[in-house]
């Protein structure tokens, strides 16, 4: 059988994956005041990796991203839980969050919140869980 020619798909994917990953990070960062957040940022990240899977095959991507996604999911849940427990240590309720204004060199006056750490945990958990599901579905026929 003739091997299908997918040079257009490969070329588009090389550009589109960068755009999707940038958009995922943008969604993750804008999640405090605008639509976005850890969950949807993680899902957009997974969409980029799924696109790579579709175009380049599962072996090549696994060789280049040598990460066990089950461990990523576990680390994410641990981070989320520990940021929640951090509020309990100082006598506040579970998942208590604080924020303050910091003067950064380039960005100027920036609002920094500890909710970002919780969001990092959520994003890692979402990435790990979805990639585990997709890899285990795509692996067997």
């Amino acid at each position: 059988m003739k091997e299908p020619n997918d040079v257009i798909l490969r070329t588009v994917t090389k550009v589109a994956v960068v755009i999707i990953l940038t958009f995922a990070i943008n969604l993750f960062i804008s999640g405090h005041h605008q639509p976005g957040g850890g969950f949807i940022g993680g899902l957009a990240f997974v969409a980029a990796i799924v696109l790579l899977f579709l175009v380049y095959g599962i072996e090549k991507v696994r060789k280049n991203i040598p990460v066990d996604f089950k461990i990523v999911a576990g680390i994410g849940v641990l981070i989320a839980v520990f940021t929640g427990v951090g509020g309990m240590i100082s006598g506040k309720p579970f998942l208590y969050q604080v924020f303050g204004h910091v003067n950064l060199p380039i960005f100027g006056e920036t609002e920094m919140a500890t909710a970002v750490l919780f969001d990092v945990g959520v994003a890692l958990a979402v990435i790990g869980t979805s990639m585990t599901i997709i890899m285990s579905i795509g692996d067997d026929r």
Partner: peptide
């Protein structure tokens, strides 16, 4: 606008 971009990406994939 985020919804637009995300729908475009998901429909593409």
């Amino acid at each position: 606008f985020e919804v637009l971009l995300l729908l475009g990406i998901l429909s593409f994939v």
